[in-house]
Design a protein around this nucleic acid. Sequence first.
DNA 1: TTCTAATAGCGAACAGTGTTCAGCGTCAAC
DNA 2: GTTGACGCTGAACACTGTTCGCTATTAGAA
Lengths: 237, 237
Amino acid sequence: MAEFPWRADQARRAARARVQLTRDEIVRTALRIVREEGVEGVSMRRVAAEFRTGPSSLYAHVANKDELLRLMFDEICGEIRIPTEIDPARWKEQVKELARESRRVLLTYNDLAGTAMAGVPTGPNALRSSEAMLSMMMAGGVPVEQAAWALDRIFLYLAADAMEFAMWKRSIRESGETPEHFIQGVREDLASYYAQLSPEDLPNLRKNAEAMVSGDNGLRFEFGLDLLVDGLDRYLG
Amino acid sequence: MAEFPWRADQARRAARARVQLTRDEIVRTALRIVREEGVEGVSMRRVAAEFRTGPSSLYAHVANKDELLRLMFDEICGEIRIPTEIDPARWKEQVKELARESRRVLLTYNDLAGTAMAGVPTGPNALRSSEAMLSMMMAGGVPVEQAAWALDRIFLYLAADAMEFAMWKRSIRESGETPEHFIQGVREDLASYYAQLSPEDLPNLRKNAEAMVSGDNGLRFEFGLDLLVDGLDRYLG
DNA sequence: TTCTAATAGCGAACAGTGTTCAGCGTCAAC
DNA sequence: GTTGACGCTGAACACTGTTCGCTATTAGAA
């Protein structure tokens, strides 16, 4: 290196260019990490290391880790596919479909959804989703206030479900077993634990151990979504 | 001290006795901290410092921080007051009442509820609450599987709501302002932000800015709870 | 009473974390 | 050519959870 300063200079310039820090690049890199390891894996050092530099270099582009997480969250909200036209007749199915699509995206990025619980997401992409869901409900005849609150509750539900799912994924990953085998094992353990409870104090849990552990995360999500969305019927004009 | 070894010895023994470490004492102390500062404030060093010792001393009574948090969570579940008798005729109101009571307790301990999202709570006190709510729904005629899933969804909703509320509380505390003033300020900021959005891209959010920021956390919680519980009607008999 | 085995508790250390800050080298404008 | 600005960086600070020997005390046996 030092023997060929002209080349070294060129190489350094190239290296610098290759490694040029940008807000977008930082967010993109952090998103790759969160997709693979969850929020836990996203440390300023870890992100910076991907650019072969130290953590302090990031602070020129991002105020702090919290801002980075919020930028990341809004970025993934941009991945939510939003229907081009809303159909008042199918408003409930459209709301559910958008919720499922949102869930699909959130689950892809593990527990990043927890960021949304730290405050109302106001990024442009998050607003696009909110606007879409609000429009659907209002088109269906839900009064504005109820629509606004339902929107709030559904997004809270989405975030919570994503968090729970991320915990499962993390447990599975750490166990090293196959997902099916691991889930089956936990289900059996839990069922036998419930079945072993005191018949006097906890009769219903004991008796219905199988029901308590039935259904996967997807089915339970759908169950809760139905309650939240279908229940809006009562507010219709 | 060193000049009067016999006295020092006595004092040390007294200090040791006064400061005797117990699982329960550790959990109690950690709960006091989480009540005042949230989970963020609960570090092994911080808890140990309350006993005038180092963090390693705790590991004789608690496997790790995760176990400590789980013990703490089950402990607060013991604070949830459960009705002595269930009334099938009032099953929906009883379920809601238990949910409100649970919320009251969870909110007291800031974001400790997040622990529950890391896995199915299986502690004795958590089971007592589950048994109670399950009994109420089954007494009301909800089929077991739907009751079990509803229980799951309601607890997830409770945890999420508590997390969101804890974030608010933290923001308020950090702002130094009075809660009323702070909330009013955020509401106005948010409303004017919505009102400023693009009329072409986000017409509904813009138009209904006031509805978007209306209602406090309690009202929104009640709104979501109604949807979740009342929606169970459809599964009756 | 004396000796021994067990054990609770503890200090120090390790590998991490977010964040700050003085100073570096480079590059653009004058 | 010089200077000013600015992106960038290494080092440091005050933390975090957890582990590992060692010490001091205690309980039980002889």
